[in-house]
């Protein structure tokens, strides 16, 4: 599935929710099911600045693809991260760098987040992209 196909799938999943509370309940569910991040990865370096809760994002690079792992101490935030990971993880760096993340607006996440919280979301995406840029340069060195 391409990044855009995955995003469309998420949009479809969210389209059944008419009430915000249902969206939140779904995010809580996703948050609970997100794979646990190893305590060793919860470092100061992996901590995202600009979030109201603590968010850690770690990334590995294997076989030309990036695998993101992330965690937060707040569950709704964790649900949002889970969506980001499902869209961005196990993809080539250039796919991530060039991705247009349209699903965030389409599922109403932006309008559900205050500016301070939306900044936190942007900080997460920025960090994921930074990883992709770093791994892209590694890739070039390999060639």
């Amino acid at each position: 599935m391409t990044i855009n196909e995955k995003q469309n799938q998420i949009i479809e999943e969210f389209s059944v929710f008419t009430e915000w509370i249902d969206k939140y309940e779904y995010l809580i569910e996703l948050g609970k099911n997100l794979a646990v991040l190893d305590e060793r990865s919860k470092t100061e370096q992996n901590l995202i600045k600009g979030c109201q809760s603590r968010v850690w994002i770690d990334a590995e690079y294997a076989d030309g693809k990036i695998i993101y792992k992330a965690d937060s101490d707040a569950i709704i935030t964790k649900g949002i991260i889970s969506l980001l990971v499902s869209v961005m993880s196990e993809r080539k760096p250039e796919e991530i760098i060039n991705a247009d993340l349209f699903f965030i607006d389409r599922i109403g996440l932006h309008e559900n987040l205050s500016p301070t919280r939306a900044n936190g979301l942007l900080a997460m995406i920025k960090q994921m992209r930074l990883y992709a840029l770093a791994f892209a340069s590694v890739q070039k060195n390999e060639i």
Binding site: Q52, S53, D73, A74, I76
Partner: peptide, 19 residues
């Protein structure tokens, strides 16, 4: 339950608290 989770849901109910 994280304070932010509590605050975000209260907010949706029109209840303004500090977190």
């Amino acid at each position: 339950i994280h304070h932010l989770d509590t605050g975000m849901i209260l907010d949706k109910k029109g209840i303004a608290v500090r977190t």
